[in-house]
C-alpha cells in the first residue's frame, strides 16, 4: 500500500519535472538536480553477470566534472531498501548518463535486474571531481572498480594524449569498461592473479608516478583503500600533486546525514560527499 502511494507520487513527479520551464536548467553549473530517469540499457561486462554498465536517459544537467557522482535509487527498491546508492559518473552527455557497478549486495543485486524503461530516481552531479589540467602530463591510477570515473575523464580531457592510465584488476579485463579507453589514451593494465602481482602493480604505480612527477605532472587515483594509501605515501615521498577519490557509505549525498565523514589532516571531519569524493592527497587522512 505504501509502496504504491510512493510510486504514484514518483509518476506525478516525473510529469512535473518534464514540464519544468527551460530556464530552470540554466542555473549555476554543477548545481545538483533531482530527476526521475528511465533505464535505456543495462549492459553486462564479462561473463559472470556481476559487472554492468547502466545507461539512463536524458538527465536535466549537462555540466559535470569527471570524479563527481550520482545517488541512484531504482523505483524497484520500494520501501524495503530505503537508501539510494552512490555511483561515480562513468560518462555523461545531454542524451544519457552512464554508471558502472559490480553486484555486491542487495541494492546492486536489484539493480542487475533493471530493464529498459524502468524508473530510477537520480540526484546529482554531486561532490568535487578531479582536476583537469590541459597542459599537464596526467597519470591516472585505477584499482578495480576505480576505473569508472576515468572513462569520462578521458572523454572530457581536451588533450587525451597527455593522459596515461595504469589499471590494476582482479577479474578478467573484459569485466571493466576499458573498451572506451584503450583507443583514446595510453593504457596499461595489470591482472592480479596472486598476492605478489599486487606488489608488482604497486611498484609500477610508484615508477609511473616518479616519471610523471619528473615532468611536473599530476596523479589521480581511484580504487580500494589500501591502494589509495600506497598512492598517498608515494605522493608524499615524491612531493607530487596527487588527488585521491574516496569511497564511503552515505545516505543522502548532500552533506546532511554525516554518514560519510573522513578526516582532513588537521583532524576536521569532512563529508566525502560534499568536500570529496576527490581530495588532495596531502590533505586527507586515510
Amino acid at each position: 500500500m505504501q509502496a504504491k502511494t510512493a510510486c504514484a507520487r514518483d509518476k506525478r513527479l516525473t510529469l512535473r519535472l518534464t514540464l519544468r520551464p527551460a530556464g530552470f536548467i540554466l542555473r549555476a553549473m554543477h548545481q545538483p538536480f533531482l530527476d526521475s530517469l528511465r533505464v535505456l540499457e543495462l549492459t553486462p561486462y564479462g561473463g559472470q553477470r556481476s559487472f554492468f554498465a547502466l545507461r539512463l536517459s536524458r538527465p536535466s544537467w549537462t555540466a559535470w566534472t569527471p570524479g563527481q557522482f550520482l545517488m541512484l535509487r531504482p523505483a524497484s527498491f520500494g520501501l524495503e531498501l530505503p537508501l539510494a546508492r552512490p555511483f561515480g559518473i562513468c560518462d555523461a552527455s545531454a542524451r544519457q548518463v552512464m554508471c558502472f557497478f559490480q553486484v555486491l549486495g542487495r541494492g546492486t543485486q536489484r539493480m542487475a535486474a533493471l530493464r529498459p524503461g524502468d524508473e530510477v530516481s537520480v540526484w546529482g552531479p554531486l561532490g568535487r571531481g578531479f582536476a583537469v589540467e590541459q597542459n599537464a602530463p596526467t597519470l591516472l591510477l585505477a584499482g578495480g572498480m576505480g576505473i569508472a570515473p576515468f572513462v569520462g575523464y578521458a572523454n572530457a580531457h581536451p588533450e587525451p594524449e597527455k593522459l596515461r592510465l595504469l589499471f590494476g584488476h582482479r577479474e578478467a579485463l573484459d569485466c571493466y569498461p576499458v573498451d572506451a579507453l584503450t583507443g583514446r589514451i595510453r593504457f596499461e593494465s595489470a591482472h592480479e592473479r596472486a598476492p605478489e602481482d599486487r606488489d608488482k602493480f604497486i611498484h609500477s604505480a610508484r615508477e609511473r608516478m616518479r616519471d610523471c612527477a619528473a615532468r611536473n605532472g599530476l596523479a589521480l587515483a581511484c580504487g580500494p583503500l589500501p591502494f589509495l594509501r600506497a598512492v598517498q605515501s608515494f605522493a608524499h615521498e615524491l612531493r607530487m600533486r596527487t588527488q585521491l577519490s574516496l569511497e564511503n557509505r552515505m545516505a543522502c549525498g548532500t552533506g546532511a546525514c554525516l554518514g560519510c565523514v573522513a578526516q582532513s589532516v588537521d583532524k576536521t571531519p569532512v563529508c566525502t560527499c560534499r568536500e570529496g569524493p576527490v581530495f588532495q592527497a596531502d590533505n586527507i587522512l586515510l
Binding site: P82, R106, R249, A251, C257, L258, A262, P269
Partner: peptide
C-alpha cells in the same frame, strides 16, 4: 562535536541504523 567513528550508518530492511554521535 566530532561524532563517532565510521561506519556510522547501515541500511536495514525498510529502514536504517545510524550512530552519527551528534557530530
Amino acid at each position: 562535536k566530532a561524532g563517532n567513528p565510521c561506519p556510522r550508518i547501515v541500511e536495514t530492511t525498510a529502514g536504517m541504523l545510524n550512530a552519527i554521535g551528534l557530530q
